[in-house]
Nucleic acid binder design. Structure first.
Length: 259
DNA sequence: ATGACAGATCAAATCTGA
């Protein structure tokens, strides 16, 4: 089974790219983030024509997460249990489903904006809720994984230049402790292989030639439990999908499982 | 083998992203 995660930065603007990628990469399950679409405008028919059912948590202009599956959908979830809201609104940042016997969550972790900003505290609270879900579901016989845009670089090597991130979000100790908490719940970072260069970055800013210069970050992550990790045969970042005009600023992370 | 932000929004300037 092939499972992938991709921050698509608007499923509307990216639909031609998405359908093309589905046809070439042939994932069985795809976790999407940053749909930037309303529930009504989600292109469910187009995806169904390609054989994919969708579990959608759409929030309109911002956020949005979905799980696409061509191996069935059981126990769909369109909200993260106990997820905190921001300024009184519970945002569309998670979708879950059991697909072909594997339980997955697609998550779009809050950005945090700046250290000390209320959004930063919101990010940490949101990750605490994610940990609670992980604790309930990880460690069983059924493979379990959380895939998505975590907006955290797990290690210093996961950003192109640490000096550029001094005092910034995505690399702080508290954010990384939240990832460590997921590991405490029995999950492990499924580290993908890069198709080029040494570090498997998954995000490159649109500006300042970041992609050609490989000024990227590894922030799209796959956290799998023991059963999931044991089934992993291969994992890689498909940086080809970041190339050319009309690309998302994130590349898909692809995991092949022996299940 | 890659190119100087992009997307969504009551439509132009602003917000968000990281």
């Amino acid at each position: 089974m092939r499972i992938a995660t991709w921050n698509i930065n608007s499923i509307t603007a990216r639909l031609p790219r998405l359908t093309q990628w589905l046809e070439t990469a042939q994932p069985d399950v795809l976790c999407l983030q940053e749909l930037k679409v309303s529930e009504e405008a989600f292109p469910g028919d187009e995806l169904r024509a390609l054989g994919y059912e969708s579990v959608v948590n759409a929030g309109g202009r911002w956020n949005g997460a979905a799980v696409l599956s061509r191996v069935g959908v059981e126990d769909p979830a369109t909200a993260l249990p106990e997820a905190p809201g921001y300024e009184g609104v519970v945002e569309a940042r998670a979708a879950g489903a059991t697909c072909g016997g594997v339980r997955v969550w697609s998550v779009y972790v809050p950005n945090g904006r700046e250290v000390g900003h209320p959004h930063y505290e919101y990010k940490l609270e949101w990750l605490a809720a994610l940990r609670a879900t992980a604790e309930k579901s990880a460690g069983g016989p059924q493979p379990f994984a959380i895939l998505g845009d975590f907006n955290i670089a797990p290690a210093d090597a996961d950003v192109w230049d640490l000096a550029e991130f001094e005092g910034a979000t995505h690399v702080t100790q508290r954010e990384r402790e939240a990832l460590a908490a997921l590991e405490g719940a029995g999950l492990k970072d499924i580290y993908p292989r890069p198709l080029k260069y040494d570090v498997p970055f998954t995000y490159w800013d649109y500006r300042q030639l970041c992609f050609p210069k490989n000024r990227g970050m590894r922030i799209d992550l796959v956290y799998g439990d023991e059963a999931f990790g044991a089934a992993v045969r291969d994992a890689y970042v498909d940086r080809e999908a970041r190339k050319g005009k009309g690309a998302s600023d994130h590349a898909p992370v692809v995991v092949d499982l022996d299940v």
